[in-house]
Amino acid sequence: MTMQFSHGSSARGAPVRRTHPDGLPDRAGLGLKPQHFAEILATGPDLGFFEIHAENYLVAGGPFHHYLRRIRDRYPLSIHGVGLSIGAEGPLDATHLDRLAALLDRYEPQSFSEHLAWSTHGGAFFNDLLPLPYNLATLNRVCDHVGQVQERLRRRILLENPATYVEFAASTLDEAAFITEVVRRTGCGLLLDVNNAYVSGVNHHRDPQAYIAALPLSEVGEIHLAGFAEDRDAAGAPLLIDTHGAPIAAAVWELYAFALERLGPTPTLIERDNDIPPLPVLVAEARCAERWIGSARPDRLEVSA
């Protein structure tokens, strides 16, 4: 009989992440961009998975489905929603949920995730992830909506922590406590966006390490890494903007290493949605993430008993 013991990990605390056998592999993946479709099929880069924005693929036919089908046949897939508006005051859009359910049935992704944010109001869509006050009223609403989404999609979803630029006088909970309670009540998982944790930490003068440590890390199913832009607030303090338009910053890589020490190996997406570079540039960033994932792998010692 062969047993496996985790060694070395105890010094930094045993990884706490619960893994799911049907989930994404503990490797790095890339956001799938139309300008890279043909090159991906031609060169087959060695990546753990691809991630798509669900809303871009809610179309009847044409090249998007043509290429996604072929790429899905070769790679694990994460579907990431940007339009469910889970934090909205109004009810969820049942038609949109039906469309998402059909997309998930069609491509059978290893993961589906959405955002702790709102993006619609009164029939208008704002194409941005807008912030919420963290209090009992929004907690109840978000939990209701997450529950409805999981019921309709018949699966556990991952909820992503936001990048925010303002805070609310009406908040009574900090963000980590709010997220912890959503995860506890709904059973959803967490998509830990390390860039968002860093951006919000700087913007609100909080310690991003303490923030990550306070999250329910056992429920993290995926990590996002991205680049930001730098601005200033009215008092001249740094204000970071989550643009997905730049390479990942050194400080975010450091925070990623901090998170991996606590999580163990975790599926990690390199997110790039603006100023998209050639595919090899993104593959190189994914390689960098995989080196960190490798170093977070607990040393294993096989013994026979």
Binding site: N127, D128, D231, A234, A235
Partner: peptide
């Protein structure tokens, strides 16, 4: 109303990030 910043700075400058994101992305 009701928006705040840790350093007490005018939240309008921070809110402008959202305004810009919405209009520019569309």
């Amino acid at each position: 109303a009701g928006l705040i910043a840790w350093n007490g700075s005018d939240p309008a400058r921070r809110f402008a990030v959202y305004r810009n994101n919405v209009v520019v992305s569309l």
